[in-house]
Simulated assay, not measured.
Amino acid sequence: MRLSMLPAFEDNYIWVLRDSRRALLVDPGDAAPVLAAAREGLEPAAILLTHHHPDHCGGVPALLERWPGLQVFAPDDERIAVECERVGEGSRLRILDSDVQVMAVPGHTRSHVAYVTDGHLFCGDTLFSLGCGRMFEGTPTQMHDSLQRLASLPGDLQVCCGHEYTQANAAFACEVEPGNPDLATRRAQVLRHRAAGLATLPTTLESERACNPFLRCNVPAVRETVARRLGHAPATPVETFAALRSWKDGFRA
């Protein structure tokens, strides 16, 4: 299976996982890039949706018009108003001769899901490289638990996030944990890629565990930074996470 991405809007990625002929699409918020790729030979076989936000699912009606009967898999959320098969925690799919595992990862939205298949983690807006999504509908406990579940997956998984946010996330991560050598190396790589007009994704889950402060709420250096901001030591990893997410919400690089 070969992975590629189609840029959409300002910073979205539509992920494409294809065999020799057909393709699995993840979060086609805009139909136009997919239709353009189809003119070059792309043949969609199925669509996976991670959550209901329009920049992740808004292109589906036009794609179903172009390819009637195209399989669509989506979380059980009435706000995704397209014909689809509803999936949730523990659902297992078979697409393009590959198994697809579905995980419920609430926090960014209440019904957000992630998909694991063929060595790839399609995590939508739950986990970003060096960051995580805002909590529009969930609680810190939900989001922290979702991130910890993702972090427990095999380290060689390719992390395929919904947005190109890595450069800004790197600036924040370095404020949180300035003495992390793995983070310094990752940030330098990110800056080189962006200067060359290249994507910073996918990355690996192993790299995220080493560098992403939102996956490192038990690390002493992260806790110490948060304690200085709070004026007291955080009592739990969830309190550490909540303080980091609140700080990031107002952070400007």
Rank of each mutant, 00 (worst) to 15 (best):
L3D: 00
F9P: 01
F9R: 14
D11H: 13
D11N: 12
N12F: 12
W15I: 01
V16A: 09
R18G: 14
R22P: 03
L24D: 06
V26H: 05
V26N: 06
P28S: 07
P33S: 07
A37I: 09
A38T: 13
R39D: 14
G41R: 04
G41E: 04
L42N: 00
E43R: 14
A45E: 11
A45S: 13
L48D: 10
L49Y: 01
L49F: 00
T50D: 00
P54Y: 09
P54S: 13
D55W: 15
C57G: 04
G59V: 06
G59N: 07
P61V: 07
L63D: 00
R66I: 01
W67K: 01
P68T: 04
P75M: 08
D76N: 13
E78T: 11
E78G: 14
I80L: 10
A81Q: 12
V82H: 06
V82A: 00
E83D: 14
C84N: 08
G88C: 10
G90A: 12
S91G: 08
S91T: 12
R94N: 12
R94Y: 09
S98E: 15
S98C: 15
S98K: 14
D99P: 03
Q101M: 12
M103T: 05
A104H: 13
A104T: 04
V105C: 15
G107S: 11
H108F: 13
R110P: 05
R110S: 14
H112L: 09
A114S: 14
Y115R: 00
T117H: 00
D118W: 06
L121F: 11
C123R: 00
T126L: 08
L127I: 00
L127R: 03
C132K: 02
C132M: 05
G133A: 06
R134M: 11
M135C: 14
M135R: 15
F136R: 15
E137W: 01
E137P: 06
T139C: 01
Q142K: 05
L147N: 06
Q148M: 13
R149Y: 02
A151S: 10
L157F: 07
Q158F: 11
V159K: 03
C160R: 03
C161G: 02
C161T: 10
C161S: 11
C161F: 00
C161P: 02
E164W: 02
E164M: 02
T166Q: 07
A171R: 12
A173I: 06
A173G: 02
C174K: 15
G179E: 11
P181W: 10
P181H: 13
D182I: 03
D182W: 15
L183P: 03
A184S: 14
T185I: 15
T185P: 09
Q189A: 15
R194P: 06
L198T: 04
A199I: 08
P202K: 03
E208T: 09
V219T: 15
V219M: 11
P220F: 08
A221I: 05
V222L: 07
V222S: 10
V222A: 12
R223E: 08
T225L: 07
R228K: 14
G231E: 03
H232G: 08
P234V: 02
A235H: 04
T236C: 05
P237R: 01
V238R: 00
E239D: 10
T240K: 07
T240P: 00
F241L: 05
F241W: 05
A243V: 01
A243M: 04
R245L: 12
S246D: 13
S246A: 09
S246C: 05
K248W: 11
G250R: 12
F251K: 03
